[in-house]
Amino acid sequence: MSLPGQRFLALDVFRGMTICLMIIVNTPGNEATTYAPLLHASWHGFTPTDLVFPSFMFAVGNALSFVMRKWEFMSTSKVVGKILKRSALIFLLGFLMYWFPFFKYNEQHQLVLSPFSETRVFGVLQRIAIAYMLAALMLYFFKTRATVIITAIILLLYKPVLMMFGDLTLTGNAVLKLDTWLLGVKHLYMGEGLPFDPEGLLSTLPSIGNVVAGFVAGKYIQERGKTYEGLAKLMIAGFGLFIVAYWWNLGFPINKKLWTSTFVLHTVGLDCMILACIIYVVDFLGRTKGTYFFQVFGKNPLFIYLLSEIGVIILWMIPVNGVPLFQWLYKNIFEYAGAYFGSFLFAVSWMLFCWLVGLILDKRKIYVRV
C-alpha cells in the first residue's frame, strides 16, 4: 500500500509524454505535408495520433486516484464544490481559448467583439471538464465497483443509441444531430468540411470510460504496481482490452470522432500496456535518466497545453511581410529541411519552446492548478 502523498514517477512521466505528443500533433508547420502517423484517422480507423487525447483523459483519471484519498477527510459539500468548481473552470478555459482573441475586424475593417453566436462551445478541455465531473461524482458517491458497472453500461448502450437516432456516417450520426439541435451549426467545429464537433456532447459520455479506467489503473498501481505480479496483471488487462476492442470492432468500428466504445477499450488497453512498460523501465530497471524532461510537462499540464494553443493563435495574428508569422517561420526557416520533415521540425520546436516555459516555471516552483 502506498503512503499518502507518495509520488509515482511513472505516472508523472506518462502524463508528461502525453502533453509532449499532444503539442507535436496539434502544431505541424503545414498540415498538408504532415507525416501520416501524426494525422488523425479521417473517420473509422486508428492512427498513433488518435491515442493522445484519450491518454490525456486516462492521465486525468490517474491523478483523480490520488486526490480522492484526500476527499475522505472532507465534508460532502466541500468535495462536491471542489469537483464542480474545477469542472466549470476547465470548461470556461476551453471556451475562452476558442473565443480568443475575442475581437475581429468586420467588413468595414472596424474592430468588433467576436460574437458568441459564432464561437465553438465544446472542445478538448470542455470534454475533459464534463467527463472528469461525471466520473468524479460517480466515484465519490457510488465508489469504484458501481462506477465501473455504470461505465460499462454506458459503453454497451452507446451503439444502440447511435443507431436509434442516426447512423455511423459523418453526416448522419446522432452526435451531430444532438449538437445541431442543442447549439446550432455555428457553435460547432468546422474543420471536417462541414459543421461537426468531434468533442460533441453525446460522444463525451463514453469518454468517461477513459477517465474511470485511468482512476482504476492509478489506484491499482498505488496498491500493487511495484510488484512483478501487479505489473504483469496490468499488462495482461491492457492486452485483454486491446483484443476485445478489435473483436468488437467488426460490428462497432473504432472511431475517435464518434468516440465509439471500441475506441475507449482500444485506447485504454494501449494506455495500460504503455504505462506498464514505463513502470518497468523507471521503477524496476531504475532507468530514470531523461525522465525530468517529461516531468516538466506533467507538473504544469493545463498551463502548458493552453500556452501551446493560444501561442499558435497569436503567431497566426502577427503579420510579417504580408503573411502570418506562423507561415513566415515555416516558409523561411523550417521548410528548407523539406516539406514533411520541416513541418515536423516546426512542431517539435514549438513543443520545445513550451517545455522551456514549463522549465522556467518549475525552477521557480510555480505550478498552475485549477
Rank of each mutant, 00 (worst) to 15 (best):
V148C: 12
T151R: 07
I153E: 06
I154S: 14
I154K: 14
L155A: 11
K159W: 07
V161R: 10
L162N: 04
M164N: 14
M164P: 08
F165C: 02
G166Y: 01
G166E: 00
G166F: 09
L170T: 04
G172L: 08
A174K: 05
L178D: 00
D179G: 08
K186F: 12
Y189N: 13
Y189H: 15
M190D: 09
M190Y: 06
M190H: 06
P195N: 06
E199N: 01
L202V: 09
L202R: 08
T204L: 02
L205F: 15
L205H: 02
L205I: 15
N210W: 07
N210V: 08
V212K: 08
V212D: 09
A213D: 03
A213G: 06
G214E: 01
V216P: 04
Y220F: 13
Q222M: 03
Q222G: 14
R224T: 14
T227E: 07
Y228G: 08
E229R: 10
K233Q: 14
G238C: 00
G238N: 05
L241T: 00
F242H: 04
F242R: 09
V244G: 02
V244P: 03
W248C: 07
N249C: 03
N249F: 06
N255M: 09
L258Y: 08
T260M: 09
T260V: 08
S261H: 07
T262M: 04
F263L: 05
V264H: 13
